[in-house]
C-alpha cells in the first residue's frame, strides 16, 4: 500500500520536475555572474541592469505592453458581451457562433497567422501596430468568452428575472447584477488575454512588420543567435509577468462568490 503511494508520489514529482526544472535552471542562471560558462560564479544583478540600460529594449517592451493592454481590453469587452448574449438570448446562428468560438481557440497559430497575413495584405494594410492589434484581439476573444461563459453558466438562471421582478431595468440588471457577478471572470479573461498577447510568437511573426517590434519576437531573434545571460534575465522577467497574471486570474476564477 505505502509502496504504491510512494510510487505515485514519485511519478508526480518526476513529471513536475520535467515541467519545472528547465525553467528553474533558466531563472537561476539569469543571476549567474558568468558570461559564457554554466559554472556558478556567484549572484549578480548585472544582466538585469543591462536590460534596464538598453533603450531599444525599453521601446520594444513598451510596444508589447501597449498591444497587450489594448488587445486585452477590446477582447474583454467584445468577449464579455458575446458570452452574456450567448447565455441570455436566442438568436439566429447562435449554435454556429458557439462552434466558431471553439474552432477559433483550436486553430493552430500558424494557420491563423498566415490567414490574417493574407487578409491584411489583400486590404493593403501596412503590417505593424494596427494589424498586430487586430490579430491579438482576435485570438484573445475566445478565451474571454469561455472564461465568462463558464462562470455565467454556474449561476441560477432565474437571477436576471429576479432582478427584473424587483424593478430593475435592462441596464440596471446588467450594472447591478450581471456585471458584479461576472467581474472575477471578466478580470481573469483580461489577464489571460494580456498574457496571451505578451507571449505570442507565431501569429505576431506573420502580422507585424519591422516598424513595430514586440518583445516575444525580439526574444525569438535573440534566442536564435545563442544563449546569453541577458536573454536569461529577459525570459525570467517574462516568466514573472506571466506567473503573476496567471496566479491572479486563477484566484479570481476559483472565487465562487460565497
Amino acid at each position: 500500500m505505502s509502496v504504491k503511494r510512494a510510487a505515485r508520489i514519485a511519478y508526480l514529482l518526476l513529471i513536475y520536475g520535467f515541467l519545472y526544472l528547465p525553467i528553474l535552471v533558466l531563472v537561476v542562471y539569469s543571476f549567474n555572474d558568468s558570461k559564457y560558462s554554466l559554472e556558478w560564479r556567484g549572484l549578480t544583478w548585472d544582466w538585469y541592469q543591462a536590460l534596464l540600460d538598453d533603450p531599444d529594449l525599453w521601446q520594444v517592451a513598451l510596444n508589447s505592453a501597449l498591444i497587450a493592454t489594448l488587445s486585452a481590453t477590446v477582447a474583454t469587452v467584445i468577449g464579455t458581451m458575446a458570452a452574456v448574449a450567448l447565455y441570455r438570448y436566442r438568436f439566429f446562428g447562435k449554435t454556429l457562433l458557439n462552434g466558431l468560438v471553439f474552432v477559433l481557440m483550436l486553430t493552430p497559430d500558424i494557420v491563423m497567422g498566415i490567414a490574417l497575413l493574407i487578409l491584411f495584405t489583400s486590404l493593403s494594410l501596412p503590417l505593424g501596430f494596427w494589424t498586430l492589434l487586430l490579430a491579438h484581439i482576435t485570438f484573445s476573444i475566445p478565451f474571454v468568452v469561455v472564461s465568462v461563459l463558464s462562470r455565467i453558466s454556474g449561476f441560477d438562471r432565474y437571477l436576471i428575472e429576479a432582478a427584473k421582478d424587483l424593478g430593475a431595468s435592462e441596464f440596471q440588471t446588467f450594472r447591478r447584477v450581471l456585471l458584479p457577478m461576472l467581474a472575477p471572470a471578466v478580470l481573469a479573461g483580461w489577464l489571460l488575454s494580456f498574457t496571451l498577447s505578451m507571449d505570442d510568437v507565431m501569429v505576431s511573426f506573420f502580422v507585424t512588420g519591422p516598424s513595430f517590434e514586440i518583445l516575444p519576437l525580439k526574444i525569438y531573434s535573440m534566442v536564435r543567435l545563442g544563449v546569453t545571460p541577458e536573454i536569461n534575465a529577459l525570459c525570467t522577467l517574462m516568466l514573472g509577468v506571466t506567473l503573476s497574471m496567471v496566479l491572479v486570474a486563477q484566484a479570481l476564477l476559483r472565487d465562487r462568490g460565497t
Binding site: 449561476f155 441560477d156 432565474y158 437571477l159 428575472e161 429576479a162 432582478a163 427584473k164 421582478d165 424587483l166 424593478g167 430593475a168 431595468s169 447584477v177 458584479p180 457577478m181 465562487r256 462568490g257 460565497t258
Partner: peptide, 20 residues
C-alpha cells in the same frame, strides 16, 4: 408592461438570491 414595472413580486423555486 415589462416585469420591472409590475406591482407584483415573485419567490422563485430556486430562490434566485444574488450571490454577490
Amino acid at each position: 408592461l415589462p416585469p420591472e414595472q409590475r406591482h407584483i413580486n415573485t419567490v422563485f423555486q430556486s430562490y434566485a438570491l444574488f450571490p454577490h
